[in-house]
Computed example of a mutant assay.
Amino acid sequence: MFSGDRFAALAARGANVQRPLWASTGTKDPAYPDTLYVAGLVARGVVNTMPEKTLLAFADHGEPGEPIEGRGAEGRAVLDEVAAAGVDLSDVFEVLEVEGVEKFAASWDELVATVRDALGAR
């Protein structure tokens, strides 16, 4: 989408490349390496909102993995296998989106409350 003649014409008029966001890439399961989702999601032009604990872990002992660029067909094949096994991917994606938005909204509300409390304490 962000290459070729069509995008070149748009870029000449000021269009920007959309940057995907890897959100909250901390490892939730302690059985997994603490840098799993940082090393495994290496790609150019991507924003990663890892928690501070993960950032510090990666700075300490993280190793960047192989870039995921050019592996779209591989990813599509995995999703096709999951769907063929009977998993309703549309439902999974919807649940993940709804829960993700709820968690970000809760985090935002917590941040706002913390700032209000700090400002009120002056």
Rank of each mutant, 00 (worst) to 15 (best):
G72V: 00
F104Y: 11
D88N: 13
W108F: 15
A106L: 02
R116Y: 13
V95L: 12
E102P: 00
E81I: 04
G62M: 09
E63P: 01
V115G: 03
P64Q: 00
E97L: 14
L89T: 02
A118R: 15
G75M: 10
A83R: 10
G70C: 06
V112T: 13
E97H: 13
A73D: 14
G72Y: 02
E63M: 11
A106E: 05
V101G: 03
V92K: 10
G65S: 05
D109E: 14
V115C: 09
P64Y: 00
G65H: 10
L111P: 03
D117K: 15
V92E: 05
S90A: 15
E110Y: 14
A83D: 03
S107N: 14
R71N: 04
L96A: 12
V95S: 09
A84R: 14
E81V: 07
G120E: 07
V92S: 09
V101K: 12
R116K: 14
L96G: 09
L111F: 13
R76L: 13
V82K: 00
G70Q: 05
A106Y: 01
V112H: 07
L96H: 10
E66V: 15
R71F: 00
E94P: 02
G120V: 04
L79P: 04
E97Q: 12
E81M: 11
W108A: 15
G65I: 06
E81L: 13
S90Q: 10
L111Y: 12
S107D: 08
G72A: 11
A77Y: 00
A84Y: 04
E102D: 14
G75Q: 09
E63I: 15
G72L: 05
F104V: 11
G65V: 02
P67G: 03
L79K: 08
V82C: 02
A83Q: 07
A84M: 09
E97V: 11
A113R: 07
W108P: 01
D91L: 15
G72W: 01
L119I: 10
F93S: 07
E74W: 08
E81R: 15
H61E: 04
L89A: 07
E97P: 00
G65F: 07
R71M: 01
A73I: 07
D88Q: 05
D88F: 04
L119Q: 12
I68S: 00
V98R: 10
A77F: 03
V87D: 00
D117V: 07
E94S: 13
E97M: 14
L96Q: 08
V98A: 04
E97D: 08
R116D: 15
R116H: 14
V115R: 06
S107W: 04
E102V: 03
S107H: 09
T114A: 15
A83H: 02
K103G: 03
G72I: 04
G65N: 06
A105V: 13
V82G: 02
L111N: 11
G72S: 07
L111T: 12
D88C: 04
E102G: 01
H61V: 00
W108C: 13
G70V: 05
D109V: 08
G100S: 01
L89H: 05
P64V: 02
T114N: 14
P64L: 02
E69D: 12
A105W: 09
G120R: 04
A83G: 01
E74C: 03
V112I: 14
L89F: 05
G72F: 05
A106Q: 08
G75V: 06
L119K: 12
G100L: 02
E99F: 06
